[in-house]
Design a protein around this nucleic acid. Structure first.
Length: 771
DNA sequence: CTAGGGTTAG
């Protein structure tokens, strides 16, 4: 921009020095002097100062002549001060095509296409003929209208006036046809052009890229004699926009020079194709190449941080933005909010939102999503109601917020009330039903959808699979018009989670493309179905295939080591986690604690547990249960007390651990107290497992009558295990009377599990006939 | 005067 400014200003200053007093000598003296100063400042790229000089002008007193006026219009227009430019134009007693064209061009540049068109017609009403400059300036406005009919009319107008289709007009026409959706007309103009420059080629290439004809685009690019950095970037973006990241990267590497736009295009290309880690790599490379990123670069990069949960990188970007003073621009601000939200920092997102000087609908939506997805539906609703304008995304965000929080009725309300629904709204509503177990309602909606895309199909397939209907899911999977990697992953996971490991494996092997999720789903499928060796084998295969595991992968493979009680494998994987830097993931760490405990190494378990920076209720439960399993009653109870001090609330599973520890340690009184505390303080309804522990606890200690009473008072039907436990206690404490009653009952409920235990107590119950 | 890169929802 600075270059063209110099050129433009140069012309005018030359004219001014030749003949500064074109019109009446004295009346314009002041404005002429001021514009000369302004031009001088412009030449030194001191735009702000130039403008402040111009601001001193009083247009009521100082009527600008043609040259002064045109200079003023250009400078104001270039700075985006369209109002002032227009004011000057209106104050000019005489104006020519240059004055009008400058304003038209600026209007287009700042996205004020309507204004540009109005100016274009106004100028002709004033009897001034547009020239080539005018047409190339106004054509972007026609391009933006997207109206092919009007576009063809202006094309005919150009031909009629014999303006001549030079590079500028021709390229602008090609661009106009591309944007109006007629790539054929664009190509025709392109082919007819007598001379073409890099711009002409580039608009044509971009046109093919936007219509998905990346092959045509690359054919043209190959034919170009002197592609400039814009042409290269267009082709790189063309590949990325059409899903060919590898080709984009190859071309990017071959670029003779790269500017900030080229780097940004490559980063956003990776992001667009969900290669978030690659996007970060490119950014690091950019920093090493000493290229200065700008706010566009950061808005491209932030979604990568967001989706990777790379909070540190996101914060680094935020710091950069604060330093450059652009952290509150709309694009960057919205991207920052989204990044903080996805990294689980709703409060930081909120801070950014509050600080922003200007917000648009995307900003509001990002914040709504932030609240909604973290369960703050009231806050989300408040924002939704107070935002100045809403679009379909705002409504969809509310629907999925309610869906994720299990509030189907609210979701339905929004779905019904919203002014227009798109495919996302329908899919979000389907997900809401699925979440609530209403698969049939979900399917009804799916059938009614006016338009489906691959995500809608995937959601419905997952819906069936999650609710145990694998066949329903499989039918859809086979029926769907096109599948992406998510479809395959969903089906593999669905099959595996419903116990069909063989079918899952078959599908897994058939997959046209596998990602880390595919491998992880299959590994998890093996682990959950008790095929621990296969899980470990597949994990090894995955590493040989050079697929980088993520925390979920580890959380899936660690339990396999635990199931095998294989300390060596467990340690191996622990090392691998260390190498991959996932040792601060609460899921992974808890899985490690569990694995070490199950592999018999309670010390290792404790070491991992103590190193954890963040612990959730699962982490505590794992360690508590670990101690309990090792018969370390006192350690279990101490840890439990420590957990209470950490202000985390225990859940039912915590108490199973605690009660069984009391049982092993023979702490009858403590056990009874904890059982009461569980119900009265934490309002946890005891399950069969808790009763089992209590019966075991009382029975082992010889309180057989109390144990029997406990069973009688159970609110649910006692399971066979409870009776077996009690019967065992009778055997150990030689209580024939209760044993007889219990054995009778047990035979009644579950003859199969009754037989062996009854056999062992046979010598106590002489009168009892087995079988 | 014409061409390339940016934020949100399933």
């Amino acid at each position: 921009m600075a270059k063209s400014m110099e050129k433009l200003v140069g012309v005018h200053s030359l004219l001014l020095t030749k003949n500064p007093y074109t019109r009446t000598p004295n009346s314009n003296r002041k404005s002429v002097d001021l514009s000369r100063d302004a031009i001088a400042l412009c030449k030194q790229s001191r735009l702000k100062e130039a403008i402040s000089v111009l601001d001193k002008m009083d247009l009521d007193d100082d009527i600008p002549n043609l040259f002064t006026g045109n200079t003023l219009v250009s400078i104001y227009a270039k700075c985006g001060r369209l109002k002032d430019a227009r004011r000057v134009l209106q104050a000019m007693p005489k104006r020519n095509v240059v004055s009008w064209t400058a304003l038209i061009a600026a209007s287009c540049k700042y996205g004020r296409y309507e204004e540009a068109l109005n100016l274009f017609y106004q100028m002709q009403r004033e009897g001034i003929e547009p020239n080539g400059f005018t047409f190339s300036s106004v054509l972007p406005a026609f391009a933006n209208l997207g109206d092919l009919k009007q576009g063809k009319e202006i094309h005919e107008d150009i031909i009629r006036r014999s303006v001549g289709t030079n590079c500028f007009v021709g390229s602008a026409l090609v661009n106009m046809y591309v944007k109006c959706g007629s790539i054929e007309d664009a190509r025709q103009v392109f082919d007819k052009m007598c001379e073409r420059n890099a711009v002409s080629w580039t608009v044509m290439i971009a046109g093919y890229a936007q219509t998905g004809q990346v092959h045509e685009a690359s054919k043209l690019f190959e034919r170009m004699k002197e592609p400039d950095v814009v042409s290269w970037t267009t082709m790189v973006a063309a590949y990325a926009q059409n899903g060919q990241v590898d080709k984009a990267l190859d071309l990017f590497k071959k670029m003779p020079e790269r500017d900030v736009v080229a780097w940004t295009a490559m980063i956003s290309g990776c992001v667009r194709n969900k290669h978030f880690d690659r996007a970060l790599d490119i950014f690091r490379e950019m920093q090493l190449a000493d290229a200065e990123p700008n706010s566009e670069t950061f808005s491209s990069l932030l979604p990568a941080c967001a989706n990777l949960g790379a909070l540190e990188c996101g914060k680094e970007v935020h710091q950069n933005l604060i330093r450059s003073g652009s952290q509150s621009s709309i694009f960057v601000g919205s991207a920052l909010i989204d990044m903080y939200v996805k990294c689980g920092k709703t409060e930081d997102a909120c801070k950014v939102f509050d600080k922003m000087a200007e917000r648009n609908v995307v900003t509001w939506n990002s914040m709504i999503v932030g609240y909604a997805q973290n369960g703050y539906l009231d806050e989300a609703l408040k924002l939704f109601e107070s935002m100045p304008e809403r679009n379909v995304v705002s409504w969809n965000a509310m629907i999925s917020g309610y869906a994720q929080n299990g509030q189907v009725d609210e979701a339905t309300k929004f779905f019904q009330e919203m002014p227009d629904r798109d495919v996302v709204s329908w899919t979000a509503m389907i997900a809401a039903y699925v979440q609530n177990g209403q698969v049939d309602d979900a399917m009804k909606l799916f059938d009614k959808m006016p338009l489906r895309n691959v995500v809608s199909w995937n959601t419905m397939i997952a819906g069936y699979a999650q609710n145990g209907n694998v066949e329903g899911g499989m039918t859809l999977f086979q029926r769907m018009p096109e599948r992406d990697v998510v479809s395959w992953n969903t089906m593999v996971a669905g099959l595996a989670q419903n116990g069909h490991v063989d079918q899952a494996l078959k599908l897994f092997q058939e997959m046209p493309e596998k990602n880390v999720v595919s491998w992880t789903s299959m590994i998890a499928g093996y682990t959950q179905n008790g095929h621990s060796n296969e899980a470990l084998k597949l994990f090894r295969e995955m590493q040989l295939a050079d697929v980088k595991p993520n925390p979920d992968t580890f959380a899936s493979v660690i339990p396999a080591c635990a199931n095998l009680a294989s300390l060596n494998h467990g340690k191996e994987i622990h090392d691998s986690i260390h190498r991959n830097g996932f040792l601060s993931d609460v899921f992974v760490e808890s899985a490690l604690v569990d694995m070490y405990a199950k592999c018999g190494s309670i010390d290792h378990a404790c070491k991992v547990f103590r190193k954890m920076l963040i612990r959730d209720v699962v982490s505590w439960n794992t360690m508590i249960t670990g101690y309990a399993m090792h018969g370390l009653g006192m350690e279990t109870i101490h840890l439990f007390e420590e957990m209470l001090l950490s202000s985390l609330n225990p859940n039912g599973i915590t108490f199973v651990g605690v009660l069984s520890a009391c049982c092993h340690a023979g702490l009858v009184q403590a056990g009874l107290q904890y059982f009461d505390c569980m119900r009265q303080i934490y309002h946890i309804t005891p399950t069969t497992e808790h009763f089992c522990c209590m019966v075991d606890l009382l029975g082992r200690a010889g309180y057989l009558n109390e144990a029997e009473n406990f069973v009688k008072e159970m609110p649910m039907e006692p399971s066979a295990t409870v009776w077996v436990s009690l019967l065992g206690a009778c055997r150990n404490h030689t209580n024939v009377e209760i044993a007889e009653r219990v054995a009778n009952l047990l035979f009644h409920i579950d003859p199969k599990s009754a037989t062996p235990i009854c056999a062992t107590v046979k010598h106590l119950c002489c009168r009892w006939q087995v079988g």
